[in-house]
Design a protein around this nucleic acid. Structure first.
Lengths: 214, 214
DNA sequence: AACCGGCTCACCCGAAGGAGTGAGAACAAA
DNA sequence: TTTGTTCTCACTCCTTCGGGTGAGCCGGTT
């Protein structure tokens, strides 16, 4: 008896590609697709799937709320969240709302299938297929402010953005220091922090990141 | 002769699903995958694909900048942008940078394949498969006014432009040397000449000049 | 032949950049 | 008060970058 799956994902191309991937497996059967959270809720009631693959980020009704609704009406259905970032605080919220686990969109498709099958067998969250450090990151995510957008310039302080802007205009550290009236070491320290926050490898990459987002 | 495709998309699951979808087609062949813009640049140089499906939103190096870099080194390769929103201003930037068109991630997979094949045949951007909307009009407008006069970069030799492109992707001299199979000193000499020809003071200024003019 | 542009490599040297650490001052929030 | 953040500065160690110079090789031109 194949596992009846419902895919809830707003990006059609991704949704259809995913369906293709899943339908190659004999033990899995995609019984429906939903284009947002509300649709997922309705489809779930109608189709009674065994498991739902639910994107966190969807229009009209987000994955977390949809999970909550579905778990209220259909407690037996298993829900796996799909998310881009593992720092996503909504993953924790989703698990609280009744999700059985989560899969990163960056996951390998083999790992993807393994997680689905493990969840089907009712294996716990701390399954070996879960990315390492889940618990740790989950706790961290709870403590992090919701405005945190990983990789964005938003998390830089004003001073750091200012310095990055100077750097992006082609100035050297010494020049920047003179312009701002601080020491060379201070500029270097700021840049050091910038590189860490942006997860980049050096000045040029940081500037590219700045030019894209700026 | 199947079309050689390179997929540049940071979400692994989407990337692999996409590959699956494309490989079912006899006339298409996925020759490689790239996980970000910089990787796309390197893979493009290595694999020489006919067409690149490039996500706009990628870490390390965004799709627009990557498009610029690739078009400068491999002018014959066709680049199709992938984006979530058709209001995305980066789509316009991408077309300006040399992309042949764009596909929304919300597109139907059949439409997706149609656009790829239309682009392969060199059909104009205002193809009927293009969704209506802002970006569509912008793309058409751009297509009607082909200008792009090469600036100071014209006096650079092919090798110099190539090296500058590598530098602009965030790579260090050692990395560039390894990629090109030449010595570190050679790369430094080329850069030395580049700085002199462009009348700039260093790496960052040269890159800015490259990104603006290229 | 002689010449020249482009590509390659080597050496020296000083300047700049970056990792990592520690720490003090100002200030706001809990 | 305690805690945390931001900005500041210093110090070491190491890598990378850039300027300058010289030189060999190859291919095409005059």
């Amino acid at each position: 008896m194949p596992l009846k799956l419902l895919i809830a994902e707003d990006q059609r191309l991704f949704r259809q590609s995913l369906r293709l991937l899943l339908e190659r497996e004999r033990d899995l059967r995609v019984v429906g697709e939903a284009i947002d959270g509300r649709d997922a809720f309705e489809q779930a009631l109608k189709l009674k799937p065994d498991m739902i693959l639910m994107d966190v980020d969807m229009p009209r009704l987000d994955g977390v709320t949809a999970t909550k609704l579905i778990r209220d009406c259909l407690p037996e259905v298993k829900i796996l969240m799909l998310s881009v970032h593992d720092e996503d605080a909504r993953i924790v919220a989703a698990v609280r709302a009744g999700a059985c686990g989560y899969i990163l969109k960056d996951a390998d498709h083999a790992e993807f299938l393994r997680i689905i099958r493990a969840t089907r067998r009712g294996e716990p969250l701390h399954s070996p297929f879960m990315p390492d450090g889940f618990a740790h990151r989950a706790v961290s995510a709870l403590h992090e402010s919701p405005n945190a957008s990983p990789g964005g310039l938003a998390l830089l302080t004003d001073r750091e953005r200012e310095i990055l802007a100077f750097a992006a205009s082609g100035q050297g550290n010494k020049e920047i220091a003179d312009h701002l009236g601080v020491s060379l070491d201070t500029v270097k320290t700021h840049l050091h922090h910038i590189y860490q926050k942006l997860h980049v490898n050096g000045r040029v990459e940081a500037i590219l990141s700045f030019l894209q987002t700026g």
